[in-house]
Design a protein around this nucleic acid. Structure first.
Lengths: 209, 209
DNA sequence: CACGGGATCCACCGATCGGTGGAGGGCGCC
DNA sequence: GGCGCCCTCCACCGATCGGTGGATCCCGTG
């Protein structure tokens, strides 16, 4: 018997997962949470075998929740289940201590197999996610953007010129340009427009009307 | 008794919706589909009262499916249920003939109420979606990008210079610049980087690793 | 302590871009 | 036919940007 905690901000998905898992007598969903903070609270008291965790949630997000569980030494295995397979989600989630990473378009039986595997402590990765990880280890110099670089890129995406961005950050325009050159190198692009596009592709930015 | 067709490419969501609706004796889920083409096929034969339709799906997407149902004169009401509330989805879906537009983070009871309302032929809109529509009517000159403009913007997002983009499209650089100026005006931005960001925000571009 | 990395700054140059103010042809709709 | 929209093209200018090749400071790790 495997006990589970289902974490997702969409009620539809929570119910879907719970229902799907309830159809199998091996599984017992002992709790549900709609955000990261609630997830940590419930995981600490319920101590489920597996936590099915979405990443993008209002308030405390999934990665922060995973890190917190790891820090607290909660023995539950965390299986990430999300729609997004962007770099910016995959790597931090695994670094934070996730046991597996699945995408929501996974078929029913694959999900059930993954939960069983996670309960045994095995690592389960969706194919595209695995590919992303391989690519990551094979690309050494392409580290992530520093916080400052991300700030600069956000301003650029907001239409600020180098000069304006410098004023916003209380630094010189030269520094902004240096940051941008480093950003281009890290993202493998040649200008600010492509850098913004790449930031969206990597999940550094999230589209929000 | 309200008959329903559930359309979503995620098995988890399909099951979640079906389960949620099955708990109420007024509803009867008579079919499920994983993409737009299947949705049209099933809707024609099953003739459900309401079609719960996701928009982003592999193959035929939701908007195309809605348009096809309208064209065929299928009497089912279509209630869009998706994660995305970007301009580029909302307006086309409603133009295509959707009766309502809900977001997946809607609570359980709101969803049930919306389905009943849709079955009666009433229009139901999520608050943020309604806001978008209001804004749309209040902003007259801000029409959508033309196909050509979208092409240009895509090239710019890919890091092409005006000169390179012109070569790609077999037009002069002057034309590319004209298109870009029109794009800036339509998107309400001042440079190419901000235009790319705005395109992602409006759902004109979709992030994809 | 030494090393590396992040953040800051400078001067200088050529290339590119944003902006103006036009113009003409084609297509669909009323 | 006229109107509007889309696509196309031109010349010119100032502002901005990309790129080079440095430099200093601070901080945390080994």
């Amino acid at each position: 018997m495997i006990t589970l905690l289902v974490v997702d901000d969409h009620p539809v998905v929570r119910d879907g997962l719970t229902g799907m898992l309830a159809s199998d007598p091996d599984f017992d969903v002992v709790g549900q949470a709609a955000d990261g903070a609630e997830a940590v609270r419930l995981a600490r008291t319920l101590r489920p075998d597996v936590v099915l965790m979405d990443l993008r949630m209002p308030g405390t997000d999934g990665v922060a929740a995973i890190a917190e569980l790891t820090r607290l030494g909660v023995p539950s295995r965390v299986l990430v289940l999300t729609t997004y397979d962007a770099d910016a989600y995959v790597v931090p989630a695994i670094e934070a201590g996730a046991t597996g990473y699945l995408l929501k378009d996974a078929p029913r039986d694959e999900l059930l197999r993954a939960v069983r595997a996670a309960a045994r402590g095995e690592s389960v990765l969706a194919p595209s996610v695995a590919g992303r990880l391989m690519h990551r280890v094979r690309t050494p110099g392409a580290g992530p953007l520093s916080p400052r670089e991300l700030q600069v890129l956000e301003l650029v995406a907001a239409g600020r010129s180098n000069h304006e961005a410098a004023a916003d950050l209380f630094i010189s325009e030269a520094t902004v340009k240096t940051h941008l050159l480093n950003i281009y190198a890290k993202l493998g692009v040649g200008d600010r427009a492509a850098a913004v596009a790449e930031a969206f592709h990597r999940g550094l930015f999230t589209p929000n009307g």
